[in-house]
């Protein structure tokens, strides 16, 4: 069977890839894609610990479902903001959205 460490390493790698995407991408939509990868990494960890430590309870799975709901809410609001910004500024490049800089 698969040792628990394999899942945790995959989740950590997925999280780091997502972090790179958030920090390095220019496009604001791509930054949100990175956030999604990080949320998925968290969910892998939650389900893994549920399966290995407490499979007789449902807590870990419920936690993962709540994270799904939060991720959906985050994407809806985030993409609405990006579309609104695009309408007003004609750009989605994060470096050019500096109107709050002084």
């Amino acid at each position: 069977m698969i040792p628990i460490s394999w899942y945790l390493i995959v989740a950590a790698a997925l999280f780091s890839i997502g972090l790179f995407g958030v920090l390095a991408r220019k496009n604001a939509v791509a930054i949100l894609l990175g956030v999604e990868l990080m949320l998925n990494a968290v969910n892998i960890n939650l389900v893994t610990f549920w399966r290995y430590n407490a499979p007789e309870t449902v807590t870990g799975q419920v936690f993962a479902i709540i994270v799904f709901a939060v991720a959906a809410a985050e994407v809806a609001v985030g993409l609405a903001l990006i579309i609104s910004i695009y309408r007003n500024r004609k750009t989605v490049v994060a470096d050019e959205l500096d109107m709050m800089k002084w």
């Binding site: 999280f15 780091s16 972090l19 790179f20 920090l23 390095a24 991408r25 220019k26 994060a94």
Partner: peptide
Amino acid sequence: PLNANWSSAALLAVLS
């Protein structure tokens, strides 16, 4: 597709 600071972002990702 990547901004000018992508190398430090990659370093930070590897560190994390």
